[in-house]
Design a protein around this nucleic acid. Structure first.
Length: 596
RNA sequence: GCCGGUGUAGCUCAGUGGCAGAGCAGCGGUUUCGUAAACCGCAGGUCGUGGGUUCAAGUCCCACCGCCGGCUCCA
């Protein structure tokens, strides 16, 4: 994986400032054209950096006023004018000292600071028309190649990403090689907006937020069904795989957090409660308490691996500005588990976990990709432990036949980890799952098992969460499915729609049979036209509408309509019931009733 | 937490210093209907909260809170 372009621009590492691929080059050049436009419109604005990023580019400017949407429109117009001028990108060089003087004289403190931070003798520049910027390229040939772009948003951003530094004004844009790709990307952004889980959560009555508890969802009946179904899925799956579920207290004395090291490393993120002159905290993680369960009995090497699942409700005091719907909350429930094993069992456990991750995500049509993060400079544990743990993770990944990225030095201080990204139907990536090897907690809590030789040994602890948190995962699912959950997850699985009051009795029979078959059904006998009730069920994303009138009553059938709009016609009720039960029990990803 | 924006009915939004509005949803009635919105009526508001300016504040000013877009951080 190439290093981030921010770093290339700031530290001048690597050969070029951007990945020398056509799209990155184009985006990088587009950011220069944008900077040129900004300089034309506001000559006093200073320049920071302008890298290409995933899907586009940005440029950071030193300016006290933020850019308004009207400013963005003006900048875009000026950029199109510059493209029309079709001036060439030309590379020049300057000795380092001269470059520093150059930027000082031009009143470009950020650029001067970057040059001061490097050791190279010479610095390269790119010029297009009247605009010149320190840059190692590469760039497109001329400004006319900058065509399919759009400026998106402006916002504040810290210089060098450090909150102690001054706030710059950043403008984000997107750029593509063809108009088609640009249009497709803009459509994706629109589509993402439509699928926003905060909007859909409100419209589908899944969950609500109130300012009395920022960052903590109120689960409404519909949303809580989704949570329950996911929990049921987790329990069924783990019960069959040798896990034991435990549940541990939420309010825990500070002593435990001092022992685990959280008080030292994580105190700012913990909610504290004073109880009779003692300090307690709402748990931000489950692991320390899990070790107490481990220590409840003397463990034998024969007991290992021990797998304790703990779907604990956690609280973390996240900074107010970071809260975002279900994606970033202060209270959440992890599908957490801790596995205690011997070193020689580690690889097999990791292999099983990777398989579990893939199995689970497959059910939702989510593609998982894996990243291995290895030992950081500051770390606990012996080199031998790290060697074995890293090798176990790597071997397990390889044995699973997976392509994975390497993040050298990005592991936790207590052990290496595998982070798992999932990609949704719009190609967006989310990080939910994590598998972490931990040497520290077993030490801190003095965990032991009695080995075959009768001697006490220290087990390894593996932390893992697959959905991550139910909150974030449901947020992802809502956007992934655009609110149209597979039937097994759908809050309402079927709605019975009598054509008029005359058919209400039969409709009620159908409804009762659905209920009897444990299908989440509703009877919509409201005094509204059929078309109205169809529309309503459709907007609520109810998978199946069972329309019943005279014809259906006579045949003991229902007319089946899917939320996609497909009308499957009259189908015997028995068959619908059987198909529905099968679809739900198998957690089928798509609608199958009446199609077999 | 920081920068900027924003907050009016359950939802979406109009209201630029002078009587708080619309559509949808809700409720009541009429209608009994064959696959994406029948019709009539009713009700619904501490205009985020607290202060200030003014004869008069949803509207102007200040503070706080929430939310939104980013930054930083993260499951």
């Amino acid at each position: 994986m190439a290093e981030p372009e921010e770093d290339r621009h700031l530290k001048l590492t690597g050969e070029f400032d951007c990945d020398p691929a056509p799209l990155s080059i184009l985006r990088h050049s587009t950011s220069h054209v944008m900077a040129q436009a900004v300089k034309r419109l506001w000559p006093d604005v200073t320049l920071a950096i302008g890298p290409a990023i995933e899907d586009g580019f940005y440029y950071d400017f030193g300016r006290s006023q933020p850019f308004t949407p009207e400013d963005l429109a003006r900048i875009e117009d000026t950029m199109r004018a510059i493209a029309k001028e079709n001036v060439r990108f030309e590379r020049t060089e300057m000795p380092r000292a001269e470059a520093i003087r150059f930027f000082r004289e031009r009143g470009e403190p950020y650029k001067a600071e970057i040059v001061e931070g490097i050791t190279d003798d010479r610095v390269s520049f790119y010029r297009q028309g009247e605009f010149i910027d320190m840059c190692r390229g590469p760039h497109v040939g001329a400004t006319s190649e900058v065509r399919h772009f759009k400026l998106l948003t402006s916002s504040g951003a810290y210089w060098r990403g450090d909150e102690k530094n001054p706030m710059l004004q950043r403008i984000y844009g997107t750029a593509w090689l063809t108009k088609d790709e640009l249009d497709k990307h803009l459509w994706r952004l629109e589509e993402a907006k439509k699928r926003d889980h905060r909007k859909l959560g409100r419209e589908l009555d899944l969950y609500a937020f109130h300012d009395v508890s920022p960052g903590a969802p109120f689960w409404l009946p519909n949303g809580w069904i989704v949570v329950r179904e996911l929990e049921r899925f987790v329990r069924e799956s783990l019960d069959a795989r040798g896990y034991q579920e435990i549940s541990t207290p939420i309010l825990v004395n500070k002593r435990l957090w001092e022992q685990s090291g959280h008080w030292e490393h994580y105190e700012d993120n913990m909610f504290k409660v004073e109880v009779e002159d003692e300090v307690f905290s709402l748990k931000p993680m489950n692991c320390p308490e899990s070790t107490l369960v481990y220590r409840h009995a003397t463990r034998s090497y024969r007991d290992l691996p021990l797998r304790f699942a703990d779907m604990g409700r956690l609280h973390r005091n996240e900074r107010s500005g970071t809260l975002t719907g279900l994606f970033r909350v202060r209270q959440f429930t992890q599908d957490d588990a801790h596995i205690y094993c011997r070193l020689d069992q580690l690889q097999e456990e990791i292999t099983q976990l990777i398989e579990l991750v893939r199995d689970w995500y497959k059910v939702f049509g989510l593609e998982a990709s894996f990243k291995l993060s290895t030992r950081p400079p500051k770390r606990l544990g012996t080199e031998e432990q790290w060697d074995i743990a890293e090798r176990s993770l790597e071997e397990a990944l390889k044995a699973s036949g997976l392509a994975f990225e390497l993040n050298p030095g990005d592991g936790a201080f207590y052990g290496p980890k595998v982070d798992i990204d999932i990609e949704d139907v719009l190609g967006r990536r989310w990080q939910n799952a994590t598998i972490q090897v931990d040497f520290a907690q077993p030490d801190r809590f003095g965990l032991e098992y009695i080995d075959a030789d009768g001697q006490p040994k220290r087990p390894i602890m593996v932390h893992r969460a697959i959905f991550g948190s139910f909150e974030r995962f449901i947020g992802v699912l809502v956007e992934h499915f655009a609110g149209a959950f597979p039937t097994w997850l759908a809050p309402v699985q079927a709605r019975v729609l009598p054509i008029s009051v005359k058919h209400e009795e039969y409709a009620r029979q159908v409804f009762d049979q659905l209920r009897g078959a444990k299908i989440r059904a509703e009877l919509d006998n409201r005094n509204e036209k059929l078309g109205y009730r169809i529309r309503d069920a459709q907007m609520r994303k109810v998978p199946y509408m069972l329309v019943v009138g005279e014809r259906e009553r006579e045949q003991g059938a229902v007319s089946l309509r899917q939320r996609s709009g497909d009308d499957l016609g009259a189908i015997p009720l028995d068959r619908v019931l059987a198909d529905l039960a099968r679809e739900i029990a198998s957690r089928a990803p798509s609608l199958t009733v009446g199609r077999s």
